[in-house]
Write a protein that binds this DNA or RNA. Structure first.
Lengths: 143, 143
DNA sequence: GTGATTATATTCACCTATAAACATTTTCAT
DNA sequence: ATGAAAATGTTTATAGGTGAATATAATCAC
């Protein structure tokens, strides 16, 4: 399980270091792809395979399904940590997440997400999550 | 059952010692998360596992579910007592609870909560639950 | 109450993760 | 082939995390 929130910076060459707490669980190779809500998703290989399989099963005849599959697969690239624990973010997906310099990496269970700091703050303050909503979600889940 | 109230301080490195009375029941590893009402929740590992599994099952395609999972998991951190019975509170979580130096730890049955002293005092006076109100709530709940 | 024991607070010292700067290699266009 | 630009690798500095030691306060047994 990936959990937690970390503020990291992107260097002038477009590289970012992955929080050390995430590295072991990520393994050597993993997939970075365009995510939902203007962020990037990072999946360990194992989780990626599961997602791939789900995507494969989507009906090719459905317009939305085709768009969804294109979105995920075209934006995906396999990455590897360099020997200082960094990765290079490909330009096309970097733009998708509006990554400049200040970023936030969050652990979200089966995946990691990379946000620009600005986007993350905005997402959080957009109050699409009021306390009441959180509370009722928690109640639903029996937390 | 966690019960009682303790005043502890956070040191300059962001560490706080867990009341000795809580330690045995907590075990070695546990999870600290952003809680409701500007405090932090501490869950024993067993409880946490159950939550994890529920969270994993929420659909990626549902916007509200994504927001909730992000809130909950990015605000979580696995902790371990050091050999003096302390834990470190990550900064993002710490800000959520407005923890400065003086804090209050309270036992609330299945979990422990960490409050800033200020917030706790305010909560107690704001909520100014009269005894009558408490009594009638209890009756409602069939206690 | 007195002393012994345990819990908590505070300080110091070390180590690791990250950031930033610099150096080297590769790629590509001319 | 040559130079420019991009990618990759290395080095160093620093902040923040971690562990240990000491000091102070609270608790307990007698």
């Amino acid at each position: 399980m990936f959990i937690g929130e970390y503020n990291h910076t992107i260097d002038v060459k477009g590289r970012i270091s992955i929080p050390s707490k995430f590295r072991e669980e990520l393994g050597e190779h993993f997939i970075v792809t365009k995510g939902l809500d203007n962020c990037l998703f990072i999946y360990p290989m194992e989780e990626w395979r599961i997602l791939e399989n789900k995507l494969k099963q989507l009906p090719l005849t459905n317009k939305d399904a085709r768009a969804f599959v294109r979105f995920f697969l075209s934006g995906a690239s396999e990455c590897e940590l360099d020997n200082q624990g960094r990765i290079r973010i490909p330009n096309n997906i970097r733009e998708h997440a509006k990554l400049e310099k200040e970023t936030v990496l969050i652990g979200v269970g089966t995946r990691i997400e990379i946000w620009s700091q600005e986007q993350w703050q905005q997402y959080n303050s957009d109050a699409n999550l009021s306390y009441d909503e959180i509370a009722s979600k928690m109640a639903e889940l029996g937390i």
